[in-house]
Design a binder for these strands. Structure first.
Lengths: 220, 220
DNA sequence: TAGTTTTTTGTATGTGCGTTCAATTTTTTG
DNA sequence: CAAAAAATTGAACGCACATACAAAAAACTA
């Protein structure tokens, strides 16, 4: 045993991370200061360095929380999917959670994207997300779409999802339903008639050796 | 007459803006400080406020320069296009200039996107760019593609271009040629056979009442 | 309750930033 | 060339930030 962590320690950590997340959503990555975080948590400014090594630590934990929230929001629809096509719809739909696909959230995510170019830890989180999307789509397409075309398909859908989030950050872009619709249209157009039939007819293998049926909401 | 601008004044302005652009590309938006800008221009730190009202002014001018560079890089291919299809290819291709579709440039652009959520001036520049892409695509599709489908088409292509730039910022994404190829594939898939034939056969109206044949490279 | 540890506070410190400005150098003018 | 104007310098200022830390408060223990 190295450390006997107290309950209060974990609690304060969580409170600070959640406070950071609130400030992050409200003021963006630039407006995120230690003082504001502590203020939002109802604590004294010095408390942060007692529970964290520094600001970077809180930031990283906060981005992870953000990712977890985005992911959790998307899982719901997956369970009800009984065909591959429905599963595809659930994945796409899960990438645009109704209450999260909003300008401020999108902009926050965008800031992290921009920052991850010079921050390996963020870049790693992002890679994990992309990999999960790919894995989810693989569970839909494998056996129906030729593997040679699979890469392009994943890339096109993923890129489009990213682009829609990016535009959402500007505030004047498509809303959730239109975004889902657009991606589904593109997916439909990219598939052959034969493939579309295959996706509609076959039942998905649930609980098999394939990847877990987790939605992959939000691009980062 | 309000101001008798000297030659040296315009020259220094230009030098500072270009220096800012270099620093911007090298250190990102966060690493862009007045000191570094002046240093890159080979001048003293105080010079900046002599030629500009403040840092924000240089920043804005720099983003405009960045846009102008991106635009200029894409015009080339347009002139040689003789069919609508070739024009479409030129527009898409022009959105990924060979020497500019690089991680650092993409990341710089991404920073501006993120910042434009809280900066009306940046947002305005971005809107102009989107409008121009739409206008360019309109000159390709009008008369061949039903206007009811035009919006979706523009949106899909524009979003995909944005997404590819976003991913390019991470450094591990598609290169220029693959990006162009992917967007063209999507464009092909979204068009009907009839429309594709129409685009290939008809000659584009150049110098007509349509929009100018300017490429629209880079999303912002 | 008295002693000990844990937790919280508020202030202090150092750093880097944008900006200002009087002094200095360079250029222009008569 | 001398006087005036323009251009440039480099140091100084105020500010906001992340962080450190001694003092105070609270919680726990025996």
């Amino acid at each position: 045993m190295t450390k006997p962590r107290t309950r209060i320690e974990d609690l304060r950590r969580k409170e600070l991370i959640e406070a950071a997340h609130r400030v992050f959503m409200r003021d963006g990555l630039d407006g995120l200061t230690t003082k504001r975080i502590c203020e939002a948590a109802g604590m004294s400014p010095g408390i942060l360095s007692y529970y964290f090594k520094g600001k970077e630590d809180v930031l990283f934990a906060m981005v992870r929380l953000n990712n977890r929230i985005l992911m959790a929001a998307g899982i719901a629809g997956m369970a009800r999917a009984t065909t591959r096509w429905a599963r595809l719809e659930a994945i796409i739909s899960g990438n645009f959670p109704a209450d999260l696909f909003e300008p401020n959230v999108a902009n926050a995510w965008l800031s992290v994207c921009a920052a991850s170019a010079r921050n390996p830890r963020y870049a790693r989180l992002q890679r994990i997300f992309y990999a999960r999307l790919r894995s989810n789509l693989a569970s839909v397409f494998s056996g129906v779409v030729a593997s040679s075309r699979f890469d392009d398909l994943v890339l096109a859908l993923g890129t489009m999802i990213d682009g829609l989030w990016l535009r959402r950050a500007s505030g004047e872009a498509l809303g959730r339903d239109d975004a889902v619709c657009l991606v589904m249209n593109v997916a439909t157009a990219l598939l052959t008639e034969e493939e579309r039939v295959g996706l509609r007819l076959e039942s998905p293998r649930i609980g098999g050796s394939g990847p877990p049926p987790h939605a992959q909401p939000g691009p980062g």
